[in-house]
C-alpha cells in the first residue's frame, strides 16, 4: 500500500475541471508521474503526481475538500 501525500495546504480536486471524470478510479493502473488530482492554492492549480507505480485504491480526501501539507490524498495497492 503506497500513500500519496499532499505537498502543500489548499483545496483538493479529483478532476481537471467540474463535470469531468476523476483522474483515477478504483482499479486503474497508476504509473510514476501520473496526475491523480489538483491542489488549488494562491490562485494556482498544482498537479499532484504519483511517485510510485501501482493500482489505484481510493481517494482518501473528498473532492473539493481542504487539505493540509502531508495529508494522505489517495492510496495505491501494490
Amino acid at each position: 500500500m503506497a500513500e500519496i501525500q499532499s505537498p502543500l495546504p489548499g483545496t483538493f480536486y479529483h478532476q481537471a475541471s467540474p463535470g469531468e471524470p476523476p483522474f483515477k478510479a478504483k482499479g486503474d493502473a497508476v504509473a510514476v508521474g501520473d496526475t491523480i488530482g489538483l491542489i488549488e492554492v494562491m490562485k494556482t492549480f498544482i498537479e499532484i503526481k504519483a511517485e510510485a507505480a501501482g493500482t489505484f485504491a481510493d481517494y482518501k480526501i473528498e473532492d473539493a475538500a481542504p487539505v493540509s501539507a502531508g495529508q494522505v490524498l489517495a492510496e495505491l495497492d501494490g
Binding site: 501525500q5 505537498p7 495546504p9 493540509s68 501539507a69 502531508g70
Partner: peptide, 8 residues
Amino acid sequence: FGFLQKGA
C-alpha cells in the same frame, strides 16, 4: 525540507 507543519 519536509512537509509544512505550522504557519505558511
